[in-house]
Amino acid sequence: MIEVEHLTKYYGEIRGVEDLSFKIGKGEIVGFLGPNGSGKTTTMRILVCYMPATRGQVKIAGFDVEKDSMAVRKKIGYLPEHPPLYNDMTVRSYLGFVGRLRGLGKRETGQGLERVVEVCALSEVVDRLIGQLSKGFRQRVGLAQALIHNPEVLVLDEPTIGLDPKQNADIRSLIKGLAGEHTIILSTHILPEVTLTCQRVIIIHQGRMVADSRLEDLTREQDLEQAFLKLIGFEQEEKRT
């Protein structure tokens, strides 16, 4: 579903990501791990056609992100790090607006709206202004916006950041519930979250890929945190002292 080959992105002289290659099959949930500033957001922004890569090729559902950008954008739902919300709109009008932007007709938008309101448990706030919502609800509205057109591929950039444990668990179970029909790639630096939601992890560090494996393989001998720290070159000994 997602094919990334030798993806490289430089911001002027500064390296964003370097020579990233991976494939993600249909229906997989993949955790995208890395310390802050490792290139997770950069990679995701390239996947969703927000910005072009310096080198390399990315194909989503067989379409190239540069040549068939419009076709790719139709297939993708994207939740950026800061949910793109308009504070002076109600949840209902906002989701309707996004539905129209995503190319849905009036009826499809209505149906999509009902579906995402139920899936994201937004029914109690659907007629409230987004500006008045709590962080947890804002995050869920962000997720609803990414889901309204029932996309094949879902790209979530730190979907659980800043949420309390209860909201966190809600979002996690929500994401798990979406597996199967949607291909999901989610980035995070909160490790326990990955063990609970993903089947596979890709770890990047300083723009380079340091691991790409099934979660079981990575955590057979050690827990994920140890494996992660080892991969990004943080010595175990150092950590103990």
């Binding site: 927000y50 419009m70 954008r73 950026p80 919300l85 996004v98 932007l101």
Partner: peptide, 9 residues
């Protein structure tokens, strides 16, 4: 929100 506009078809 420009990120939304720039990633919509």
């Amino acid at each position: 929100t420009e990120e939304l506009l720039l990633t919509c078809p």
